[in-house]
Amino acid sequence: MSMIAYIGFNFPIKRNEGDVEHEYEVDYVCPDAEHLNIVKQKHFTTPYIFEILQFANPIWELTDYNKAYSPHNYEKSKKNFLDLCHSLKELLPKGDICEIYICWDGEENEDLEVELKINLNDLQIEAIEIYEKCFIRVEN
Rank of each mutant, 00 (worst) to 15 (best):
V29H: 08
Y101K: 00
L36Q: 07
N37M: 06
L53A: 13
E21C: 11
E126P: 11
E61C: 10
F44H: 04
K89D: 04
L84W: 02
E113Q: 11
L62E: 00
Y101F: 07
I100A: 02
N121L: 10
Y101A: 02
I100V: 03
V39H: 04
K78Y: 07
A68D: 14
D32L: 09
M3F: 13
T46G: 05
A127G: 11
I118R: 02
D64R: 14
N121T: 13
A127Q: 14
L116A: 02
W60S: 08
Q41K: 15
I136E: 01
N37F: 03
K40N: 12
Y74P: 09
G8K: 00
N37H: 06
I130Y: 04
L92W: 00
C30S: 15
Q41A: 14
G18V: 07
H43G: 01
V39L: 02
E34K: 14
F55I: 09
H72A: 13
G95P: 07
W60K: 00
V20A: 14
D105M: 11
L91T: 10
Q54V: 08
V114F: 13
V114P: 08
T63V: 02
N10S: 11
V26M: 08
I4G: 05
L36P: 02
L88T: 06
H72N: 13
S2N: 15
Y131M: 03
L91H: 05
I52N: 01
S87C: 12
A5R: 06
E34P: 02
